[in-house]
Computed example of a mutant assay.
Amino acid sequence: MSGTLGPAPGRIAYAELDVFAAYGSFLVQDDTARPDTSRAFITDLMNNLVATTDGAISVGTARRRILPVTLDVRTEAPEDNLDDWDHVTEAGLRITSGRLVVSTFDYRTAIPRTTVPPGDYTARTYASGFDTISDDRIHGDDAYRVILWPGPTVEPRVLKRYPHLPIPG
């Protein structure tokens, strides 16, 4: 995975996952949340590769495949360099159950859960490898990293926009 991040000042949880991006996206969500994917949600996801609903953040992807996703929950915001990343977003997430799920509307017990303290988090999502995606969007070396830390549930925003943004779906 390309991209560099500053050292983690404190780690709460960490997981390297293979996540199926069924509709060109995946969810980072509280285990009890069941996202409402309204028209506005889908529009935000398509335009910015990030959207939120109660208890969940949706992350847009360049392909509909099983993709590498690194989940890193820290005690503080990362000090990072965005230069090595194609697209970076930020959003807020409220976790009430103390369990975090990264999937695409898949709540089976076989899907890994990551234990985190309940509370409000800020999430920063990084994507790399967009220039490696084939025209049919089947092949590529895209990878995703999600870093959460205790903080305000900020509105979704793009910190760095990929100039040829792939549209999920």
Score class of each variant (00 low, 15 high):
P150L: 10
A91M: 02
S38K: 09
P7L: 13
L5P: 09
L165D: 01
T52C: 02
P152E: 13
R161K: 08
T70L: 07
I167M: 14
K160E: 10
A13Y: 07
P166T: 08
E76H: 10
W149I: 08
G55Y: 06
I133V: 15
R124L: 05
D54A: 14
T37C: 10
A127R: 10
T96M: 03
V88F: 13
P150T: 15
T53W: 05
G169Y: 07
T70M: 07
A13C: 07
L93H: 04
H139K: 09
S25Y: 06
V19I: 12
A110D: 10
L67P: 02
L100K: 04
R99K: 09
D86W: 03
E79A: 11
L159K: 00
R113G: 03
Y14A: 12
N81V: 13
I66L: 04
T115F: 00
D131N: 06
V50D: 02
V59C: 05
L5M: 13
G10A: 11
R64L: 06
G3V: 12
N47V: 03
R161T: 07
E79M: 06
D44C: 00
T75M: 01
A110F: 09
D72T: 10
V69T: 09
E76D: 14
L71P: 04
S2C: 02
W85G: 02
P168D: 01
V50I: 14
D84G: 15
D31N: 11
R157W: 11
A123V: 12
D84F: 15
I42D: 00
V28G: 05
W85V: 13
R157Q: 15
T61M: 11
N47K: 13
D86I: 01
G60Q: 09
L148A: 05
A91N: 05
T53I: 02
A143T: 11
L5E: 06
P163E: 14
V73S: 03
H164I: 02
R108P: 00
G10C: 07
E76W: 03
W149M: 04
T4L: 13
T153Q: 11
T153I: 10
V102L: 12
G98H: 04
I133S: 08
M1T: 07
V102S: 10
L27C: 08
H164W: 04
Y107C: 03
A62D: 05
S58H: 08
F20C: 06
Y126Q: 06
M46A: 14
D86T: 04
R11L: 14
T104V: 00
L93R: 04
Y162P: 03
V69K: 02
I167H: 14
R74I: 12
P118E: 00
A56Q: 03
R63Y: 05
P168H: 01
L165P: 06
G151M: 07
G98Q: 09
T89H: 07
L45R: 01
D120G: 10
L17Y: 07
E155K: 00
D106V: 15
W149H: 14
P35V: 11
N81R: 11
T109L: 04
Y23P: 01
A21S: 14
P7A: 15
S134T: 13
R39T: 11
Y107T: 15
V69H: 01
D18S: 07
L67V: 08
V158Y: 09
N48G: 04
T52P: 00
R39V: 13
P166E: 06
A21T: 11
N47G: 12
T153C: 12
D142P: 08
T89P: 04
D31L: 11
R94C: 00
T70C: 05
P166R: 01
